[in-house]
Amino acid sequence: MLTLTCPCCGISAEETELAPGGEAHLKRFGPGSSDDEFESYLFARKNPKGVHFERWRHAYGCGKWFLAARDTVTLEVFGTYKAQTPYPTPEIVAAIQAKRPDWKPDWHQPSVNTTTTPAESLTE
């Protein structure tokens, strides 16, 4: 049974105090998106053996959602971080690579204006 430290309140909570929320960093595709884009958003999940990014809610606690980077095989937790980020933070990436030197990010983070969120782009 996992323990994760909620980055929003600093509490180390056990799995029964948390609610899982599936894969993190999904980009929402709404009206106007192609069938392929919508399918990938709604259904396609990585389900990796190894490094994985997940959504968790500190349900029996501060109630906040947060994200966790962990290894699905060894259950090692590389770190937890705020949900309000479109990609794993540089600190998390560094923490993972310190333990898994061969691991490389599989996303292409825009080099500029990384603070623009999917939400903002959607609601314009």
Binding site: G21, R57, W65, Q84, A119
Partner: peptide, 15 residues
């Protein structure tokens, strides 16, 4: 309530 908080916290966190 959880559904609303999910969207507010994780998608439209600047609203």
């Amino acid at each position: 309530h959880a559904h609303m908080e999910d969207w507010l916290q994780c998608e439209w966190w600047d609203w």
